[in-house]
Design a protein around this nucleic acid. Structure first.
Length: 890
DNA sequence: GTTATCACG
DNA sequence: ACGTACGTGATAACA
């Protein structure tokens, strides 16, 4: 395409979809997904394509919420109504459809669609091409020139008004450039652009016909009279700013050439499949595409909504009971993230060609008995979504769940643990299955949450149960294909049931002990506040990093060590460096420490103790950590203080739930370095563990080239840091930061380490190479993590991916091992008929409560099960200890 | 909602 | 030359 020929079609995506949404009546496809705005957009698009016959096409979208316009005026677009979920759920659909049309989409953080379009028209003009801009926003008229025509939708979107500079002149008596001045004076309520109050279109036009520009109007304000003069003089700054806000920025840094938006038409098969998904039958017919498209899409359409929704109420139970033998998928809906608190909404079961939906209130009625028996029947297999969470929700109203056969969320996590959208809709989309309505659209968001009418609710929950059923075969096949079948069925799936038991059990926490500690902390915090304010010379909020920064660096003039994006950094690392300068710093550090303990651990934990039982029930999330670790929420019991004595006291409140019982804790010794010894095969490292040497001392000996007797505590400390660095995927910079040494010195340590442990060096090199080759890394049990950035040309991204490649197999294998140990312990407790209970997991530690008479056997059994969970080339070792609370079990 | 900070392995 | 140690969750302040 040479210069001078060609016509660009530039579409303001946000504006058009917005117009379309409000112009067309609500419309949903058979699974309840709203589609009216996409339909309107499509109609407009086809019409303009037909009429304009462009050579190039693109659609621009606004990206993010904050643009450069907010820098000068934070209220820009403020007070706008939030986008209703029925509309926002249509954006992904539209974007998918545009892809099927082979139409490129542009968005750039910090800029709006009209800026991108403005930039394209500038480039088009420079290259002697013509352009047609489509928008619902009259602001765009400022772009009109001899080469650029602007189409503004009217009456919905089926018709457009065509504006060349002449037509702008006819309609407003202005040049296109003056449209900006018009807006500067009259403002725009929808974007929260103020303009001059009291000046509307009429007045603004009159002024502009007389004076031409905003600036000129302001310069000649003295020639005006009365109210008008007062208003304009009082709001001259508003007018100037409004003009700036209304000006389209035409220098957006886009790294694209016009060639990239050249449009050669769409692929019929792709388009028809997208249109079928949306169920836009009339458009398929209009384009005469009925014959196009593969069988696959037809199947998808057929699979969608091919079931009957049956609402179970007081009368509907019998039909459900008859079909329970065929039931496949279960979906339990509850509102809230915390399974120990979520409010039950409804239960859906997909069975044969029917989906039954039971309101949650009916679950525990006498009529629900047979259904509850089915839920509790271990021989009645159920596919589900987040079954572990579901089990806890049901348990709260005394309903047992057994027979979990497959969890689509858990499976999806194994297939890609870093996938950010774990929702059912996300899963459906990734497997190219028909989507369902978004929760946001059905229930509303945040405070506006409402359970819809029974019929709408039933349709939604039925769609979810059906989605689970449709997903299951795809996911289990993929697990099979990737060789992850055993990881799922032998590790993660059984573990989810073990976790649910632990969480239901909970751990007893002595509230009085916590409160007592809290009183002490509070007294000391108040003393410290006084002392800090006295040293500063005035009162301020020490907890505010902003105010603290001002006090330290402006009032007291301490040196600025580090900055954050928003101001001075005041984190512990910085404060430690500042300690010698002023005694206030030490107090602030201590204040921080105590307030952390008070708010997160005293007050936070007290809120989580259930008054009826005195227990805390955490929730282990099994599908969060990219490495395969668990995470703990509501509250997090994996970060209870231990490193500093003051915080460690908190652990005294964690006690056995039965009189006379004890807390038993067992933790793996150096599990990650042992894993490293195994997977790297390094002889020296393996030998160190076989001979049960102190690994940090051994490292110090090799790195510093000295005998064991010559290793002092400082050498050992540094060697320990090197070992941490190795596990994290070492870099000289990271190690230098940690040890407060120069990068050169750190690099020398690392080199020494690799010379002492050549097998480790080889492992680090080969795992990076393998990751580059495959695009992912795996653990010993074939857990997988993709590293898309491993081949990035950006140094930072690539380096991050390389460290992850080195760390994930180590951290992930350690996670595999303790998970195995948990399953084995659970089994061992049952098989030996023991009363002891597994309560907590903290990555390399398991915590139990044990009756006195089982102490001896448990002290042997637990470390033994942990040590033999997986057979490595080095021994695994678990240390065990017992106490009357978690503090003492150390 | 995002940011800074800090608790753990 | 590039500039971060790996993996999490909770809280208070701020926007």
């Amino acid at each position: 395409m040479g210069k001078g020929s060609g016509k660009l079609l530039l579409i303001d995506g946000n504006s058009i979809i917005n117009r379309a949404f409000y112009a067309l009546p609500p419309l949903t496809n058979s699974s309840g997904v709203h589609t009216n705005a996409v339909l309107g957009f499509t109609t407009m698009l086809l019409r303009v394509l037909d009429e304009e016959k462009p050579s190039h096409v693109m659609v621009a979208f606004d990206a993010g919420k904050v643009t450069f316009r907010h820098e000068g005026y934070a209220e820009y677009k403020g007070g706008r109504q939030k986008t209703p979920p029925e509309m926002s759920e249509q954006f992904p659909l539209l974007k998918e459809l545009l892809q099927a049309f082979s139409i490129p989409q542009f968005e750039l953080p910090g800029y709006e669609a009209d800026d991108i379009i403005g930039t394209f028209t500038r480039v088009a003009e420079e290259q002697g091409k013509t352009a047609v801009v489509v928008s619902g926003d009259k602001d765009m008229l400022q772009l009109a020139t001899d080469q650029v025509t602007v189409l503004i939708t009217r009456k919905g979107i089926s018709e457009v008004e065509r504006y060349t500079p002449e037509q702008v002149g006819e309609k407003y008596g202005l040049t296109p450039e003056q449209i900006i001045d018009l807006k500067g004076l009259m403002g725009d309520a929808s974007d929260n652009i103020p303009g001059v109050p009291g000046v509307g279109e009429k007045t603004a036009l009159k002024l502009l016909h007389e004076y031409g520009t905003v600036e000129n109007v302001l310069d000649h304000a003295s020639e005006l009279t009365g109210k008008m003069r007062e208003k304009i003089e009082a709001h001259s700054e508003d007018a100037r700013m409004s003009k700036r806000l209304a000006t389209i920025f035409r220098e957006v840094p886009l790294q694209h050439s016009l060639d990239e938006v050249e449009w050669k038409g769409y692929d019929s098969a792709q388009l028809v499949s997208a249109l079928r998904k949306l169920e836009f039958k009339s458009i398929i017919e209009r384009l005469d595409l009925s014959a196009a498209g593969g069988v696959e899409q037809a199947e998808i359409e057929e699979a969608a909504a091919k079931y009957e929704v049956i609402r179970v109420d007081t009368a509907g139970w019998d039909a459900l009971h008859d079909k329970l033998a065929d039931a496949e998928a279960l979906y339990v809906e509850a509102h809230g993230e915390n399974p120990h608190q979520a409010q039950g909404i409804g239960v859906a079961v997909a069975a044969g060609s029917q989906c039954f939906v039971i309101p949650f209130e009916l679950l525990c009625t006498p009529e629900g008995e047979r259904f509850r028996a089915w839920l509790a029947d271990g021989d009645a297999p159920k596919y589900g979504y987040e079954l572990h969470w579901t089990e806890l929700v049901l348990a709260r109203c005394g309903v047992d769940l057994r027979g979990q056969a497959f969890d689509v969320q858990l499976a999806a996590y194994l297939l890609d643990p870093t996938e950010s959208d774990p929702s059912l809709n996300g899963l459906l989309q990734r497997h190219q299955l028909a989507g369902i309505a978004s929760d946001e659209a059905v229930y509303g968001k945040g405070a506006k949450f409402r359970v819809p009418a029974a019929e709408d609710l039933a349709r939604h929950l039925a769609a979810k149960a059906d989605a689970v059923r449709r997903l299951k075969p795809h996911l289990s096949k993929e697990l099979e294909d990737l060789g992850m079948h055993r990881l799922y069925y032998e590790l993660e799936h059984p573990l989810s049931c073990v976790l649910a038991e632990m969480e239901k059990q909970g751990i007893s926490v002595n509230a009085d002990a916590l409160k007592e500690l809290g009183v002490d902390f509070q007294r000391r915090i108040e003393e410290m506040i006084k002392a800090i304010h006295e040293l500063a010379g005035f009162e301020f909020n020490i907890g505010s990093p902003k105010q603290l920064g001002e006090v330290l660096f402006e009032k007291l003039g301490l040196p600025v060590v580090k900055k954050t994006k928003t101001g001075y950094s005041t984190d512990a690392e910085v404060l430690e460096k500042l300690e010698p300068y002023h005694e206030i710093v030490r107090l602030i550090l201590h204040y921080r420490q105590l307030t952390k303990l008070q708010s997160t651990y005293i007050e936070g934990l007290l809120k989580e103790i259930r008054p009826e039982t005195g227990k805390i029930h955490t929730y282990y999330r099994q599908t969060i950590a990219a490495t395969g670790r668990l995470s703990s929420q509501f509250p997090n019991l994996q970060n209870i203080p231990i490193r500093l004595e003051e915080g460690r006291q908190i652990r005294k409140a964690f006690v056995p739930s039965e009189p006379g019982w004890r807390i038993l804790a067992a933790d793996y010794s150096q599990i990650e370095l042992r894993v490293l010894a195994h997977i790297s095969g390094d002889e020296g490292l393996k030998e160190a563990f076989v001979k049960e040497m102190d690994i940090h001392t051994k490292t110090a000996m090799d790195v510093f080239g000295v005998e064991a007797e010559q290793v002092d505590s400082n050498m050992r400390r540094q060697a320990k840091a090197v070992n941490f660095g190795i596990v994290y995927g070492i870099s000289d910079y990271g190690l230098s930061q940690n040890l407060n040494i120069t990068r050169k010195e750190a690099a020398a340590f690392i080199e020494q380490y690799f010379e002492a442990f050549p097998g480790v060096r080889h492992y680090m090199d080969s795992i990076k190479a393998k990751a580059k080759e495959d695009g992912y890394v795996t653990t010993l049990l074939d857990r997988r993590r993709y590293l898309p950035d491993i081949r990035a040309s950006n140094f930072n991204l690539r380096s991050f991916a390389e460290r992850t490649a080195m760390n994930t197999p180590i951290q992930g294998t350690a996670a595999d091992i303790i998970k195995l140990a948990m399953i084995r312990m659970d089994k061992a407790l049952r098989e030996n008929g023991l009363k002891s209970r597994m309560l907590l997991q903290v990555h390399d530690e398991l915590v139990f409560e044990v009756p006195e008479e089982e102490l001896e056997i448990m002290k042997k059994l637990v470390p033994e099960q942990m040590a033999t969970a997986l057979d490595l080339d080095v021994p695994l070792l678990a240390d065990v200890s017992v106490g009357s609370n978690w503090y003492e079990a150390k």
